[in-house]
């Protein structure tokens, strides 16, 4: 295609975005828009699926039948959300299994929070409350994302996730109001998950080179730092309400800005975990790879049987 044609197409494309007209799968789109979306949506899908593991770790040890059912349903939702998101990447021409292979060979990233271990039952509370809380803050604006299939998947996901954070906070509240042992368990979980939760919003805006373009394309609606601040502002009073202490000595309310000031994030830790050196990166990827490899004969058998049946029907 001639260069001026592309420029014209790009102009028309941006005009649609500026007028809040959604982009649909078969519409023309710049290559980079497609690539950025595939990267972002598949990372999001991987995060849902890898995210099943730290919580799945406690399903067989849940302390009562109600908690067991809730946790099962929640982890199952995450599988569903991964699936909706992989479907959205498939509309962009990215085959689901290829995308998953990128996860397994380490080329694709996922949310670094899931590389932390879940050591006690309170971690189920902390994950629901903090991790899902942070995820919701990221996700609600994505319901208005410019790419139709992603926006529609996010609407469904946000609707379903509304119980996830609540169940986590309910676990934390119960522990915080429980015996001293339980309260200590809750505080310990908050201590371990607080900073990784803040890291979930990604690098500071100054170190986030894609943000400007993504905001122009309305793939992203708020910057990392805006969302992080919003999360801190909302979550700190919740911790206070149930009598837990946020593990940040620099945390204090700033009358002037109307926001909480908080201490520096350990970005060395963040990058170490993102680059594969977190406490559980290897376990998580190994578990997902094993699931795929162990399932290969099953998927193959189902295809073989379906083919036999089709032949029978045809004859």
């Amino acid at each position: 295609m001639k260069e001026e044609n592309i420029e014209e197409l790009e102009r028309q494309f941006q005009e649609k975005i500026d007028n809040d007209i959604k982009i649909e799968p078969r519409d023309w789109m710049p290559d980079n828009y497609r690539k950025t979306l595939i990267r972002q949506i598949s990372q999001h899908a991987h995060s849902e699926v890898v995210g099943m593991l730290p919580e799945g770790n406690w399903i067989t040890r849940a302390p009562n039948l109600r908690r067991k059912a809730v946790l099962l349903a929640k982890v199952q939702d995450e599988a569903g959300h991964g699936l909706y998101l992989y479907s959205a990447t498939e509309t962009l021409g990215a085959d689901r299994e290829d995308t998953i292979d990128d996860l397994h060979d380490g080329t694709a990233k996922y949310s670094s929070i899931f590389n932390y271990p879940t050591l006690t039952w309170a971690d189920m509370g902390a994950i629901g409350w903090l991790v899902d809380g942070a995820a919701i803050m990221n996700q609600v604006p994505l319901c208005r994302c410019s790419y139709g299939p992603y926006a529609r998947a996010m609407v469904r996901i946000c609707k379903e996730e509304s119980f996830h954070q609540r169940q986590g906070f309910e676990i934390m509240t119960t522990l915080a109001n429980g015996t001293p042992e339980q309260k200590a368990m809750a505080q310990d979980a908050l201590n371990r998950f607080w900073w990784p939760a803040l890291m979930m919003f990604g690098p500071n805006d100054a170190d986030s080179p894609h943000t400007a373009q993504s905001m122009k394309w309305k793939i992203k609606r708020h910057t990392n730092d805006e969302l992080r601040q919003q999360f801190v502002d909302v979550t700190v009073p919740q911790a206070e309400l149930i009598g837990l202490t946020v593990p940040d000595p620099d945390l204090k309310w700033n009358e002037e800005t109307g926001h909480y000031d908080f201490g520096p994030i350990n970005w060395d830790e963040f990058w170490a975990v993102v680059n594969g050196n977190g406490p559980c990166n290897k376990e998580r990827i190994d578990a997902r790879r094993k699931a795929k490899e162990d399932g290969e004969w099953v998927r193959e058998a189902a295809n073989a049987y379906a083919a036999k049946k089709r032949t029978k029907k045809a004859s």
């Binding site: 699936l83 909706y84 498939e90 689901r96 469904r156 998927r299 189902a302 049987y305 379906a306």
Partner: peptide
Amino acid sequence: AGSLRAADEIM
């Protein structure tokens, strides 16, 4: 509603 993978129509 969306899409999914399956070997045949029943599945």
